[in-house]
Amino acid sequence: MSTLEIKDLKVQVKTEDGPKEILKGVTLTIKDGETHAIMGPNGSGKSTLAYSIAGHPRYEVTGGTVTLDGEDVLEMSVDERARAGLFLAMQYPVEVPGVSVANFLRTAKTAIDGEAPKLRTWVKDVNGVMERMNLDASFSQRSVNEGFSGGEKKRHEIAQLDLLDPKVAILDETDSGLDIDALKVVSEGVNRFREREGKGVLLITHYTRILRYIKPDYVHVFVDGQVADEGGPELADELEANGYEKYLGTKV
C-alpha cells in the first residue's frame, strides 16, 4: 500500500533576478495502483513538480506538504526519498563519465535494498531487463548516459524503474523524443511496473500519444504552476482535440 500526497505545494527557483515562484499551490493524491497523467504546455512547471518531489537542491519549497504513506518527504534528503520508495525518471538524464551502467545499477540497488543483491539472480535480472528494454548486452559496460541516444537514455531510465522497484514512479516526459518503436518498449516497461502490487505512477507528458499505451486513471491539466482541470481519461481525448488554448485563455 502506498500513497503519495501533495498538498498545496508552492515552489520557487533562484534566478539572477531573485526568486521566482513556479508552483503556486499544487494538490494531488496518488493512491495505490493508480496512474495519474499530468499534461501541460512547456514551461507550466511540470518538471519543477517532479524535481521538487525528488528533492533537487535548485528548487525551494515555500509552502505545502508532500507525504509518502504519511511520512514527510520534504524532510528527507534526496537519497532518503529514493530509499523511501520514490523514483524519478528524468526528462534529461545526466551523464556520469567513467561509471558503468552495471556498477551504477548495482550500487543503486544495494543502496535501495540496504544489502547487495545476490550476484547470480542479479546478473540474470539485469540481463532480462536489458533485453526487454531492447538494450544490447554491451550496454552495461558503457558509462551512465554518456553518448546514449535520446531513446537509450529513456529506456535506461525505465530499466532502472524495473530493477529498483519503487513504490511510486514519477515519469517526466519519458515519451518525449522517442520514435514509435521506442515508445512502445518504454510503455510496456511502465505497464509491467504498474502490474505489480500497489504501485503508483505520476506520468508527466506534453503529448497525448503515450496515453494510447499507458492508460491513466486520472488526468490533470497543468497550467502556470497549478492544476487547471482534472478528470478521467476522456480529458486527454479532449486535450488531443482542442489543445491547451482553453486553459491558457482563461488565464487573463
Binding site: A54, G55, H56, P57, R58, S77, V78, D79, R81, A82, R83, F87, L88, M90, P93, V94, E95, V96, F104, T107, A108, A111, I112, V144, Q160, L164
Partner: peptide, 15 residues
C-alpha cells in the same frame, strides 16, 4: 557537478 550527484542520489545512493 551537482547534477551528477543529484542523479546518483535520486537512485538512493548516499551523498
Amino acid at each position: 557537478d551537482d547534477e551528477q550527484l543529484f542523479y546518483l542520489r535520486s537512485r538512493g545512493v548516499s551523498e
